[in-house]
Design a protein around this nucleic acid. Structure first.
Lengths: 193, 193, 193, 193
DNA sequence: AATGAATGAGTCTTCATTCAT
DNA sequence: AATGAATGAAGACTCATTCAT
């Protein structure tokens, strides 16, 4: 079966298998054997393509972050210029599938937890959060004072994260509409202060 | 060396050592050898008192939840009857030390993550969250319609969780005052709708 | 079977098993499973007592060096003060059992080879060789000029090493008597220059 | 890229790469991947040309032996018929570059070690040693009794091997001149008994 | 001729648990 | 009550080999 140009295909296969395994078994039980088995390949291939388990984990997290980033970018590009619209686009992107199905959120939570003790992963997290914060603040600044904008951005970010966390921790799917609705209310309250 | 009545002392020693280890090394590297070493006891003692590592983990989590519960109860008992005051008491309890130092939050995050795949721990999480939600909703119901109260409770809970999560993920200490301030604003906005 | 004070016993058991395994299977095939099996213990115990395979290897080599050192010291203490006698004592110590059975020499050869790429082991080798050289030169200096003594010491050391190497490489036992005899001739020739 | 007549070129490329890898990383870390990388070819080619790693190792050792053999033959052909001259030619051949640079001796030592547990390689070693011994004895027999000649040959062979071993084990280059000088002294002493 | 993708057995190590003392 | 010696399964990783291209 050896073919040329398999690298991108195998990498994506393995990243998908990692997400699926972490989701179902949890991070602690996501052995490379489990992952390789789900990807339908041998264990050795993981070291071959990612240099080891850590490389696969980091690549998987990078993939999730990239997906989220693209989701935000796409929705922002489709809306008008009013800050409220643009803020809601960001909110909606954060609650859009596939980001909010329970599987993805469980993986996110697992990554959050381990990133605390792995500098590389932690840096990825930081970049992601700064991006969200910066996006939010940029819009709030159009209508609010710097101090108010900062607070509004932090509050909205916390709200988004809070709903996510709740979505991950409850075994039921997150109530996307309610989350968006409450974020919307928060935004309006901030902008109409 | 055998003494009587050592059980509660040893148990607390080990729980403290578990918190310290999880905080410093992360959950993945918190072996019972590390924990036992920090507690200054032998590894065998853990099985003796907790029946195994899982038992120790569960006891530790139970301890954290109990601490939080007591914190909430204490602060609620000290304030008046106005819903706003009582809600703020709950908020402040959730951001009171030692709950919000970074160490505790890192441990919480670790527990959240593993609780997804351990029914026993998950149940503990659920109980805790339901208690918070119920506490919040109970107060909101005094001034809001059931629907509004439910949404306000969910929003406030998300806000609290969001600030916690941010506190855990950033290596700096959580900005407690800002978090409380923003929660206060949220409460007022909900109550004055 | 857990007993207290097993450490020295287990350590020696494992060192003996290492020697036996390296002798029979060669260094490349001396896995810790093989060694543990020969010692009649589990693999985990190696890490427990030596911190890993490397620790066991180093301890084993240290043991061989110590044995050789003791052998030299013992024989030197039994002879008179004439340089020739003392030199012969050193020579005989180097060819005394258990140093010269084929097993020991095969292990020595294996250690020599791997010490080239392991600084810790290499340092042990250097110390050992310097000790031999210094011992030899010290005796030669009593009767020869510094230059001659240095050359005689190097020559005799080479002769000893050469017979050892030959003993290791031929599958038959080393001809101890011939080796000693030839060393004796070499010593006499040097001293009667 | 496929060309005809690549076999000898590729084989030599791989043998050179093997020597370089064993010298720098040691035998234990000389993986096929390392060797192939240094040779600038793919791993598969090794099996193609040598039938596996063992084949490559054996070919490399055979190459070293052949080099040594040629060196001896060349120098012997250039000297007169006096036994002393011829013996010295053999000695010099054994200490001639490239045989005595540290790299080559490290490789030799590695080969010696593994040959103990690989019959094929061991046979090569034996042939090589017998050739040396036979060469030496043949010259000694011209002037000495069979018994004396045997002992002189064994002694000189040991001396040569000993200097080699020392050259391999010390990280500094071997002192070729001193080695040859001491061998010369040994030869003269044997012949003038 | 040459590649390199893929395998899977084998290695070392870690770790929770057990148990005689 | 407490120890720590001992186990053995499971983990990540390496590596020689195979084979379709």
């Amino acid at each position: 079966m050896p073919k040329v140009g398999m690298q991108p295909i195998r990498r994506q296969q393995l990243i998908d298998a990692t997400l699926s395994t972490v989701n179902e078994l949890g991070f602690a039980d996501a052995s490379i054997q489990q992952i390789a088995q789900r990807a339908g390949v041998s264990t050795g291939i993981i070291s071959h393509y990612f240099g080891g388990k850590n490389g696969l984990i980091e690549a998987t997290m990078r993939y999730l972050l990239q997906q989220l980033g693209e989701s935000v970018r796409d929705l922002k590009s489709e809306v008008g210029h009013s800050p409220e619209d643009r803020l809601m686009a960001i909110v909606k992107a954060n609650f859009a599938t596939p980001q909010t199905n329970q599987a993805a959120m469980k993986v996110w939570l697992a990554f959050w937890a381990i990133s605390l003790h792995q500098p590389d992963l932690h840096r990825l997290q930081q970049v992601n959060h700064c991006r969200l914060h910066s996006n939010l603040k940029h819009e709030f600044l159009k209508l609010l004072s710097p101090l108010k904008a900062e607070q509004a951005a932090q509050g909205l970010a916390a709200l988004i994260d809070g709903f996510w966390l709740r979505g991950a921790l409850t075994r039921s799917e997150i109530d996307t509409d309610l989350s968006i609705h409450l974020c919307h209310a928060f935004i309006q309250q901030q902008l109409t202060q």
